[in-house]
Design a protein around this nucleic acid. Structure first.
Length: 569
RNA sequence: GCACCAGUAGCUCAGCUGGAUAGAGCACCUGAUUUCUAAUCAGGCGGUCAGAGGUUCAAAUCCUCUCUGGUGUACCA
């Protein structure tokens, strides 16, 4: 139910503004004691040549009574409305009960959205800085499918480039020293060793560039090794994605577009937007402050930029997307700016639909870990530690409940994911072990706990509460706050999706959970206030339905963040 | 040098795109438990919204400058 719209309709007969304008002015007061909706009268003051307070008085005095609004009065320059919870409860709760997890979902619109996320480099283990792209991208994908889009989740692997030349050199030189089976961490060790040695021996870098050139030319030995490194890496990645419950629709890779780079080069040349500089082919930037975009190296090899452009052209051919999201760290902002710039110069309108969804650094003890230096914090370790902490906590609490292994996994992993997604993307975030393994307050486990608590009440209610409920009994403030919050679910989703900002949804869920715990907690202080102790069955049923609705919204909201929630914990 | 991003309580962060007395969580202090799940709830402590100007009825929010931190700056990706 769109309460802002209803309120705007009520006001529209007495305010000389278009319905939409009124609706956009309506806000939610900072304190619910002041009302549930507020219409500020400042902007009318000039037009009416009267003080905002007087205008508010006159409007509130002339409004007709609607059952939806218990009371409308002015507080200073605001016209504030108090919603009658019993009037909205039936609509909201039956909508949730009927749709279940589909509550607030929008019908399919057939439009394609491509989300490029996670996209790790082959031959390096997944570290915490990959967590952000992976989790943010996954959540954006869930949000857009909730909004009715057809989402293509694309894992665009960094599987091409000079680094493979380096690896091949390293493997040929020191590979025989590796003991046992070659794993991703052993590959990484070779890479680390190469980095160290090559800083003193420039010849190694030349060899590496040479091997990469060979790889691009289709040299059999190079390709064989490259394929092998890739296979080993993918097996490792899949293990983590499975833990996180993430799947991809398409695995792509830069390597696929290395060949088609010629198309890009030709197009740039024929359009006359490129030029030769120091032997390399470049496209000049529009902004004088930016460097040019390198399309082809002076030795004829491809660049990251040209491969990405070729990949983008290919994606549009395949999917005709309405949105193309690149979920990649902010350090690559310039790269995506140049990518868009070149594609725009190529005369392709879809350059406007491409968006770089950037995010800040993940740091550990003030530094961003580096796989090259071997100081990275591995994603697997983080997840395992958090899960272990949950297990420890449960055994120490001496709880009688038997908590399943599945639930322990969900809680441990949920804590890590929520910790990351509850903050705005742009912020750099400091990785603190104690914080990851803290499960109190504004955390994922808090939301899961709230949800489990609600489900427990629903489970114990042994009758058809939707059938027997009398929603007009829901008159308490604590009930109203929860109801209004449930009603805002779709707004939270839309906001979150439009801004590609999962933290907005995360914060919405925290508020919902807070109101919920307050509401339910009344039953702890006074036994008679417990929902299932209520002797008036229609009222008890209405409250149970409310709790049921909360559980559904919390579970669905968490799912949109990529977090699964246990039935019991 | 230039460009982009950030700066709000001791710490981690919100602040609904310009509105009411700047809010949460953690930490610290006090209280509630033979739990419809205490991974909870109630209360206390804690602020020069980096600084200075400006725009207007109204600025943490918009503009300008300064300071601090981070990132990027063509043949790595």
């Amino acid at each position: 139910m769109n309460l802002k719209l209803k309120y705007a309709e009520l006001l529209s007969n007495h305010v000389d503004l278009a319905l939409d304008e009124i609706k956009n002015l309506i806000e939610i007061p900072p304190d619910s004691k002041m009302g549930d909706l507020a219409f500020p009268c400042f902007s009318l003051a000039k037009k009416l040549k009267n003080s905002p307070v007087k205008i508010a008085e006159s409007i509130s005095g002339s409004l007709e009574k609607l059952p939806l609004f218990k009371e409308v009065k002015n507080i200073g320059p605001y016209v504030n409305a108090f919603v009658d919870p019993s009037f909205i409860a039936h609509g909201i709760l039956s909508e949730i009960a009927e749709n279940g997890s589909g509550y607030s979902s929008q019908p399919e619109n057939g439009k394609n959205v491509v989300v490029d996320f996670s996209s790790p480099n082959i031959a390096k283990p997944l570290a915490i800085h990959h967590l952000r792209s992976t989790m943010i991208g996954n959540s954006i994908s869930q949000l857009y499918s909730k909004m009715g889009y057809n989402v293509i989740k694309l894992n665009y692997l960094g599987d091409w480039g000079t680094q493979f030349g380096k690896l091949i050199v390293a493997y040929n030189k020191w590979g025989s020293e590796v003991e046992g089976e070659l794993t991703i961490s052993k590959i990484n060790e070779l890479y680390v060793k190469f980095s160290k040695e090559s800083s003193e021996d420039n010849d190694l870098n030349d060899q590496a560039r040479n091997w990469f050139k060979k790889l691009e030319e289709g040299n059999a030995e190079a390709i064989k090794l490259w394929k092998w490194f890739k296979e080993i890496s993918l097996i490792e990645f899949e293990k983590i994605y499975k833990k996180l419950g993430i799947t991809f629709d398409v695995y792509g890779g830069e390597s696929e577009h290395a060949a088609s780079f010629l198309t890009v080069v030709e197009k740039c040349e024929s359009l006359g937007i490129s030029s030769i500089s120091d032997g390399a082919l470049i496209v000049e930037s529009e902004d004088e402050n930016d460097p040019p975009c390198l399309i082809r190296k002076s030795d004829g090899a491809t660049t990251y930029e040209v491969r990405d452009i070729a990949a983008l052209l290919d994606r549009f051919d395949k999917y005709e997307f309405v949105k193309m999201f690149y979920v990649v760290g902010q350090e690559q902002a310039l790269h995506f700016k140049m990518l868009k710039m070149v594609v725009k110069k190529m005369g392709l309108a879809f350059s406007n639909d491409c968006e770089h969804i950037s995010f800040g650094f993940m740091k550990f003890q003030g530094k961003s870990g580096s796989t090259r230096e071997g100081t990275a914090i591995l994603m697997e370790d983080v997840l395992n530690t958090s899960v272990a902490e949950v297990r420890k906590r449960i055994s120490e609490s001496g709880s009688k409940r038997n908590i399943s292994e599945e639930a322990i996994q969900q809680i441990g992993i949920g804590a890590v994911v929520f910790g990351d997604l509850s903050k705005k993307r742009v912020k750099d975030s400091e990785f603190i072990w104690e914080e990851v393994t803290s499960f109190e307050g504004d955390t994922g486990p808090y939301l899961q706990y709230t949800q489990a608590r609600c489900l427990s009440i629903v489970r114990k209610s042994n009758h058809d509460f939707m059938e027997q409920a009398d929603f007009s009994g829901l008159t308490e403030d604590s009930e109203k706050l929860v109801l209004l919050k449930l009603n805002q679910f779709s707004e939270a989703i839309i906001n979150s999706a439009n801004n590609c900002e999962p933290s907005l949804l995360a914060n919405y869920l925290l508020e919902l959970a807070k109101f919920t715990n307050r509401f339910i907690h009344g039953g702890r202080e006074e036994h008679s206030k417990r929902i299932l102790q209520e002797s008036n069955l229609p009222l008890q049923s209405a409250r149970t339905a409310l709790v049921h609705g909360i559980a559904i919204v919390l579970k669905e909201g968490l799912r949109l963040l990529g977090i699964s929630s246990p039935e019991e914990m």
